[in-house]
Simulated scan of single mutants.
Amino acid sequence: MSAAPGLFVTFEGGEGAGKSTQIRLLAEALRARGLTVLMTREPGGSKGAEAVRHVLLSGAAEPYGIRMEAILFAAARNDHVEQVIRPALSAGTVVLCDRFMDSSRVYQGITGNLEQPFIAALERVAVNGVVPDCTIIFDLPAAIGLERARKRSAGPDEQPDRFEKEELETHEKRREAFLDIAEREPLRCRVVDATQTQEAIADQVLAIAEPLLPINAHDRHDPEPIS
């Protein structure tokens, strides 16, 4: 795991699963307890990684093939880890990240048909020992998630990214891949039913995170006066 004073929680799932909303709600709940919280995302989260994000989500990297795309994701992740996540964890911060290594396992590995040893090697280099303490996987039927994502992208200034444009069958395959990761790594991963109400999901997410918190503000006591 992260092996640092802070706590590293990643949020995973398909398109439209509500990860961003739940990250914000958890951050608000933890800050209300006096904890220092960093919200971040992938691809992106650091200056170098944000530059790569545009290339990846715009589809500009597609002509170079899925292998090059996976390498770009890994490069962005490593910059994010070393410039943002590792320093924050060392400072005792709770880091909440929208997507991390499991998205590469699923998007480039499973539906990108890249061989597992290649994905595993990229992951080792990219994360450099910084593995989530907990990964919350938001499970949602792909048809529902895509409908949500398309509504979100229907605004005048919004366009579906290259992943939202893919076929329903591909998205359902990713859903199954995330569930398979959770089954294989039950100590790290927790699955949340994302068809529930926003409030019910938020309560469940907080219940998952609460026992893992490095410092619970409600458990703090003023020091006894020196007599």
Rank of each mutant, 00 (worst) to 15 (best):
A29W: 00
L30K: 02
L30P: 01
R31L: 00
R33F: 03
R33W: 03
G34C: 09
L35H: 12
T36Y: 00
V37S: 12
L38Y: 04
L38A: 10
L38H: 05
R41C: 08
R41D: 03
E42G: 13
P43W: 09
G45W: 01
G45F: 02
K47G: 13
K47L: 14
K47H: 07
K47S: 11
G48E: 09
G48P: 06
G48H: 05
A49E: 05
A49G: 08
E50S: 13
V52M: 09
R53Y: 10
R53L: 11
H54D: 15
V55H: 09
L56I: 15
S58K: 05
S58H: 05
S58F: 09
A61G: 08
E62R: 13
P63S: 12
G65S: 08
I66L: 12
R67G: 13
R67H: 14
E69H: 08
F73G: 12
A75N: 10
A76K: 04
A76P: 06
R77M: 12
R77K: 08
R77Q: 11
N78T: 12
D79H: 08
D79T: 02
H80S: 06
V81T: 03
V81C: 01
E82R: 15
Q83Y: 00
Q83R: 04
I85A: 02
I85D: 01
I85Y: 03
A88K: 09
A88Y: 01
A91T: 05
A91Y: 00
A91Q: 13
G92P: 03
V94I: 05
D98Y: 04
F100N: 05
M101F: 12
D102E: 06
S103N: 07
S104L: 04
S104C: 13
S104I: 08
R105C: 06
V106H: 11
Y107G: 13
Q108N: 10
G109A: 05
I110H: 14
G112W: 11
N113H: 15
P117T: 09
F118E: 14
F118M: 15
L122T: 11
L122E: 09
V125N: 03
V125T: 14
A126D: 10
A126V: 07
V130C: 13
V131L: 09
P132R: 01
P132I: 03
D133W: 09
D133C: 04
T135D: 01
T135P: 04
I136N: 02
I137R: 01
F138M: 13
D139Y: 05
